[in-house]
């Protein structure tokens, strides 16, 4: 049967002049903001192109970052492998820690909290989502750093038979582990809010049915709510991952920048691409600046890919509900 709703039928409408101008103007504005992404990518590519050309694939695979000596005796050498690995390691630690908490907080707010505290708690969650990253940074630098160094020491003493819990020297501050914990805290609100959104859309009748069959609350959550929210949760986790990959100042303040690929998460050495840019920017040579532009482009493309995928997943989870 053919459907002929206004929206669906192809209709030729001749609009008045005011409307044509109005629609053109809005379209121009929208396309302008849309094209920002393309502009960012092309300008960074344009500025960083020389470095990509000079170093080729080793820009990604080499861990050495050296701006060279002024007299040219030591040539400059740029590679972001250590920083890329650092970005990924800290982001993975962050999401590994944050995800279980996000699930629990979302379940608590949706299904466990008494209704009179649900609203205020949600407001508080929205509020902490707005805490600026520099404040996370200063707190991480002064409070968390010392606390978590102690935890890292314990982890190391119990689990040093697992290779990534080993350390080359007993210094536990400013490690990828601590940066990961801080990032976990920073991405918890966004991951939780996506989880909450998908969990709240779980079909009420199925939940009631699970109860009605003599099940428990946890039984209903495990058999109905969690499977229903799984794909949305993956999207939420990826949104968090994207944020964690691109964070600058907080990581800059709690992580010891070392140009060496480090997978020992408790060791005091690491970095990420964003903090590399912030660290080197102020004293960079013109050539090194181009290297930073190139690094920025790589970071941009990686986070954009992660975010676009996450957005697709979350939107699909929203719409199928």
């Amino acid at each position: 049967m053919e459907s002929t709703d206004l929206k669906q039928r192809e209709i030729v409408i001749r609009r008045g002049l005011a409307d044509r101008i109005f629609r053109r103007a809005m379209a121009t504005g929208a396309i302008l903001s849309l094209s920002l992404l393309a502009l960012i990518a092309s300008f960074l590519l344009f500025r960083g192109f020389e470095v990509f050309r000079d170093f080729g694939f080793s820009f990604i695979t080499s861990a050495k970052w050296d701006s060279g000596s002024a007299d040219g005796v030591t040539p400059a050498s740029f590679g972001i492998a250590a920083m890329l690995v650092g970005s990924v390691v800290t982001a993975i630690i962050a999401i590994t820690v944050a995800l279980p908490f996000a699930i629990c907080v979302a379940l608590f707010l949706e299904y466990y909290a008494p209704s009179f505290i649900r609203k205020p708690l949600t407001a508080v969650l929205d509020l902490v989502a707005a805490i600026p990253s520099v404040i996370y940074g200063i707190w991480g630098y002064t409070i968390l750093n010392n606390l978590a160094a102690g935890w890292a020491k314990s982890l190391n003493s119990w689990f040093d038979w697992i290779w990534f819990f080993k350390v080359p020297a007993p210094i536990f501050t400013r490690s990828p582990f601590i940066a990961g914990l801080l990032l976990a805290l920073m991405i918890l609100p966004i991951t939780t809010s996506v989880a909450r959104e998908v969990y709240s859309q779980a079909p009420r009748d199925q939940i009631d049915a699970a109860y009605g069959l003599g099940g428990t609350k946890w039984g209903a959550i495990r058999s109905v709510v969690m499977p229903f929210g799984r794909s949305g949760l993956v999207g939420g986790a990826m949104l968090g991952l994207g944020r964690a990959l691109g964070e600058t100042v907080a990581v800059y303040l709690v992580l010891n920048l070392v140009f060496k690929i480090n997978l020992q998460i408790l060791a005091s050495a690491g970095g990420n691409v964003a903090s590399l840019i912030a660290t080197r920017f102020s004293e960079a040579t013109p050539y090194e600046l181009k290297g930073l532009m190139a690094a920025g482009l790589v970071l941009f493309l990686v986070t954009l890919a992660v975010n676009a995928t996450a957005t697709l997943i979350v939107n699909r989870a929203r719409n199928t509900a």
Binding site: E2, T4, D5, L6, R9, I11
Partner: peptide
């Protein structure tokens, strides 16, 4: 019928 005449809904045929 009214919406169709007003132009808020479209005719099917």
């Amino acid at each position: 019928v009214l919406q169709t005449i007003a132009g808020i809904a479209a005719l099917k045929s």
